[in-house]
């Protein structure tokens, strides 16, 4: 399954970054496909990007909401939130494990042999703060004299934007190099920090700072495709703890908001206590959970 997942990650990387003419045009793709939402974190200013980044688009819409309303345009983000919510309700953070280019980048870095460090669990809550403040509230309320908000997360933090758009555009367009300032060095530092951290820790950005992952995580209990635990089969061997790239203790919190449904725990579980379900129904070919009620009744009789 891990082999399949890698291929799906590569496929999504190519689908969301399929414009390979950029070395010739030295610009970004400007075709109609950019009206499609990229499910993972993929900067739309990346020269190869063929879809829009939901976080970037949402911040842009929220930042320009006053101006749009003044002009009689009700661009309040329904289209982008609708796309993000539909994806979240369907698969939730499975996107992080299967379709996010920046997640793939971190996974590949983590394959470099090194000592490994865990992440202090309270750090995982930073991403919810970033989602609320940097993606929603600041673009909406911290406005300039023209009533325009800024794309706070993209501007000050997003390492995916620096990697996929900032650095390639600086290479492609020499005129941009003169515009490099403190802002860029700040973002470059954040990119380098997460890059180095990814070598020693699994998916540090996903776990601590990704607002898109935080948003998808809100759907962990209700998403259509999810992993389920059969507690009666679990012998608490904790095999699922050690293999999880997100540091989730699956048998203790099966609906954990950080679960990316990569299926590593399902494979590691020797008692087949973890299986994939769609809308409450087990996927064909998956281990069937036990039915404790029936068994318990037999014992009591």
């Amino acid at each position: 399954m891990e082999f399949v997942r890698k291929w799906v990650q590569a496929l999504f990387f190519l689908l969301t970054n399929g414009y390979w003419n950029f070395p010739v045009t030295k610009g970004i793709y400007q075709g109609p496909l950019k009206v499609i939402c990229s499910p993972g974190l993929n900067c739309y200013s990346c020269p190869a990007a063929t879809s829009y980044c939901p976080l970037g688009a949402l911040q842009q819409l929220l930042g320009g909401i006053r101006l749009a309303l003044e002009n009689g345009q009700f661009f309040v983000g329904f289209y982008v939130i609708g796309a993000m919510g539909a994806i979240g309700s369907f698969v939730g953070r499975m996107i992080c494990g299967w379709a996010c280019p920046f997640g793939l980048f971190q996974e590949l870095l983590n394959k470099i042999p090194s000592v490994t460090f865990s992440i202090w669990r309270p750090l995982r809550f930073i991403k919810y703060g970033l989602l609320l403040f940097m993606v929603v509230l600041l673009p909406l309320f911290a406005v300039d004299e023209f009533g325009l908000g800024s794309t706070w997360f993209c501007k000050y933090i997003c390492p995916a934007g620096t990697l996929e758009a900032g650095l390639p555009l600086l290479i492609l367009q020499s005129s941009l190099r003169s515009a490099i300032g403190l802002l860029f060095y700040n973002k470059l530092f954040i990119l380098i920090a997460f890059t180095v951290w990814s070598v020693f820790t699994s998916r540090p950005f996903c776990r601590t700072a990704c607002p898109l992952g935080a948003f998808y995580g809100l759907f962990s209990k209700i998403k259509l495709v999810k992993l389920r635990l059969a507690p009666e089969k679990c012998n608490n061997c904790q095999a699922c703890h050690s293999v999880c790239p997100m540091g989730v203790h699956f048998n203790e919190s099966p609906d954990d908001m950080d679960c990316i449904t990569c299926l590593a725990c399902s494979k590691a579980c020797k008692t087949n206590a973890i299986s994939l379900e769609i809308g409450g129904m087990p996927l064909p070919g998956q281990a069937q959970p036990c039915r404790p009620a029936k068994t318990a009744r037999v014992h009591h009789q």
Binding site: P32, K34, C43, S51, A57, A68, L176, I180
Partner: peptide
């Protein structure tokens, strides 16, 4: 159309340049 308009322009401040 608004999303497309935004996504087809390089957002310099978004990527930390300018």
């Amino acid at each position: 159309s608004r999303v497309l308009e935004q996504a087809t322009q390089i957002c310099l401040s978004c990527i930390g340049i300018g």
